[in-house]
């Protein structure tokens, strides 16, 4: 039911962990619905230099988290903000229909982390 790309990212997830000196961190989901994603970013000169994730969830939740970290590394904040959940799913060659709604939250977690970074910059 999952694409090869999903299985690849599930089996060998990229950028697992949490940055110690992060510029921003974002978390979405809740344990009740079975998915939690936490993304931490390190930003320098408006570029996302490093990114890591931790996810509690199904195969799709882990694969989308891994994929979004790969998509965003080296990108500017503005570029990163244009990444959508849909784009993440597309980069994984699609997800089963049910998973599009429940486990496709990685871009939301990314945006939350960016917002957190931006808020910190302002204050």
């Amino acid at each position: 039911m999952y694409s090869e790309k999903v299985m690849d990212h599930f089996t060998n997830p990229r950028n697992v962990g949490e940055l110690e000196n992060f510029s921003g961190v974002g978390e979405v989901g809740n344990p009740a619905c079975g998915d939690i994603m936490r993304i931490s970013l390190f930003v320098e000169d408006n570029i996302i230099k490093d990114v890591k994730f931790k996810t509690f969830g199904c195969g799709a939740a882990i694969a989308t988290s891994s994929m979004v970290t790969e998509m965003v590394k080296g990108k500017s904040i503005e570029e990163a903000l244009t990444i959508t959940n849909k784009a993440v799913a597309k980069a994984l060659d699609g997800l089963p229909p049910l998973k599009m709604h429940c486990s496709n939250l990685a871009a939301d977690a990314l945006h939350k982390a960016i917002n957190n970074y931006q808020e910190k910059m302002i204050s």
């Binding site: 079975g34 969830g57 199904c58 195969g59 939740a61 049910l98």
Partner: peptide
Amino acid sequence: EFVEGESMLLSLDMKGIAASSGSACTTGSL
């Protein structure tokens, strides 16, 4: 605790073990 059923099922399946889970992913609902 702290892990989700479907991701365990997928991992077990990769080791040739067939099991099932009561997680939402496998009940077909949220």
